[in-house]
Design a binder for these strands. Sequence first.
DNA 1: TGACTTTGTGCCGACGCTAAACAAAATACG
DNA 2: CGTATTTTGTTTAGCGTCGGCACAAAGTCA
Lengths: 399, 399
Amino acid sequence: MERGRGALGPALALVHTGRAPTRAVLTAELGVTRATAGAVAAELEALGLIQVDPHPIAAAGSQGRPSHGLSIAPHGPVVLAAQIHADGFRAALVGLGGRMVATAPGCMTVPADPARIIDAVVEAGAELLRATRRRCLGAGLAVPSAVAEPDGTALNPLHLSWPTGAPVAELFSEALAKSGVLGPGGTPVTGVAGNDVNLAALAEHRHGAGRGARHLLCVATGHRGVGGALVVDGRVHSGSSGLALEVGHLTVNPAGMPCHCGSRGCLDVETDPLAFLTAAGREPGPAVSLLQQSRDLLRSEYADPTVREAAELVVDRLGLGLAGLVNILNPDRIVLGGLHRELLEADPERLRAVVADRSLWGRSGSVPILSGTLDHNSLIGAAEAAWQPVLDDPLAALG
Amino acid sequence: MERGRGALGPALALVHTGRAPTRAVLTAELGVTRATAGAVAAELEALGLIQVDPHPIAAAGSQGRPSHGLSIAPHGPVVLAAQIHADGFRAALVGLGGRMVATAPGCMTVPADPARIIDAVVEAGAELLRATRRRCLGAGLAVPSAVAEPDGTALNPLHLSWPTGAPVAELFSEALAKSGVLGPGGTPVTGVAGNDVNLAALAEHRHGAGRGARHLLCVATGHRGVGGALVVDGRVHSGSSGLALEVGHLTVNPAGMPCHCGSRGCLDVETDPLAFLTAAGREPGPAVSLLQQSRDLLRSEYADPTVREAAELVVDRLGLGLAGLVNILNPDRIVLGGLHRELLEADPERLRAVVADRSLWGRSGSVPILSGTLDHNSLIGAAEAAWQPVLDDPLAALG
DNA sequence: TGACTTTGTGCCGACGCTAAACAAAATACG
DNA sequence: CGTATTTTGTTTAGCGTCGGCACAAAGTCA
């Protein structure tokens, strides 16, 4: 009777990621008949998730009846996305398609009690929901720490001075309930928490520089240490318990600086912002974040040989680490974030050459290395994680 | 009308891996009704793949009507499995359930022309097929080299003195056609080729020490160099082009021996049989393989402090490498093969302690490290790869 | 022996899709 | 400018697959 139930999720995912601009394309991408695709589109429209343009699209040069355009419903439901980082937090409402509907930055020295800042960020999000009167279907939180699955505890929130094992997912859900963020069934929205780089990778894969990659490797450094993430066939590869891609302790300089892990010359201590500032002979100041200081130095004083050589040193070390990861993971694309992105942009060829030279199969087919293209990609990624149940089964998620 | 078509593949996989000993268990595992499970079992029996015991199984202690046992059809179809290694080759016929039906070892110095040995190994397999008159549904070949996907070329057949890029999958299929190995449609069987450690990992996951693991990491060393493989949710994680898990060039000894990759102290040159023999002060002889020499030394002279210390040195280096892999891949089980397996069995606690100590989350939950349990696991793995189309869709593969 | 528990089977209906015919909306071409 | 062509959307019929249910079968327990 009701047609197009099984394909509902895949169809929404296609529109969500912009791979189904029209119903005709949707039909082809789903591999179903026009009848089914039409029913699917109608159902998604009835659910208030997408919009089928009433007037057909002016087809460019092709003959035949033009197809109706598909787009995300402009006033459809949203998810609450949140990010906690070294300098504070940010809350936002994000619709399908990765579009930020409303945002509220919150500057705040992160307290040692994770519950306090999570309460604050959720309250900021709840305020946005009250102001915009949007329906909320989920919530996602990005934290700068490994997050163990399936319990959702933060294992190494080093620069947040949180206790190890803080139950961030649970705290997030409790805060959502306390703030009265209700989902479709009238029940409180449950929140998911994830590592910020994992979520950034997910966002870049869906809406950014990682679109279309089958095995996307992301590496980024923001404040201290280096984070990695792998997205395989559209899903974050988080290992058996969420702790995969802890790439910071690959050896990239055997004679290098000692690391708290017990080894020397780890990627963490050789390529993060502090390492760059130190290599350039600069004393890090307390005013702005280490990333900002590094970025400023790189952009304004790259002509200075000391700065340039420091950058090249860090690029060489990063290249070694990336080559090691390429050997183990064999990605078909690499996207860099944070300071690593800046370093790539300062001298793209050097990094690509090092990676190609030091990866085993680099010569037979080198891996494209790109910059992340999304602003707030961890935040968008948190939204993606929150959308996931809806993308998997829209009917079940909407009630 | 015909019930249980969609579940045919999953059901066969359950019987194949021994997870569905009875129809009742099959019903539960598939999550379908008894009616559907019954139809599925009947269909698989009609296809000649499995056997439904006519008389029910004596249920141990439980009441209720006893269920009928399910088992692999004893005279059902087979696949042709082949393995090429440093000392020669081996061909076999393997039925479902990983049971070797017939085998033919072939000792032969591996010629520089891959076509010649592939022809020989296929001819040995074809002879087995003629002798046993079994129906052949596929063919798989394990080679000690990375195999690029999807074209099936061998990229680093170092100790085979083959040219880089040898099209082994193509040569294999051509040899099968030439030898008259015909599949169900009367057309020649097409062969799949894979890296031996990847295939061994697959075999261990389905029938050996890796059963039940969701993220299984296998590391093994046979002759020269070290191979790795990751099986995620029952599938080999081979990266975007089949070249993943090239683990041999992780740095495990910064001051170590130079490696052809340009670095020093790689896992390859620090933990393979040659490294062990060298560390023990033994000159490798030409008579038997390096693995055999190492194994003999380890088993017969472990009381000798020189040998013991060499073993401990290699174990420590291996532990560092495994810890690095644990940090990146977060497996829930590790299975070792070749000399690494022997080293684990010589002193299990030492290796486990090193890995737990040097992996970031080792203390919160250490990864079980086990020995491979299958004889000829690469060969069985080659069979698994050959069975895959049948396991995915029995009707299509047999029709 | 009879109650109970668990497994296997036959029948019906619901669900979700394909197929096919038809209608609609554009371009191409004489 | 009208007709053919192409491509898209819709309607209807039908079919394949599975769940639900009732009943039968085969054992254990008291």
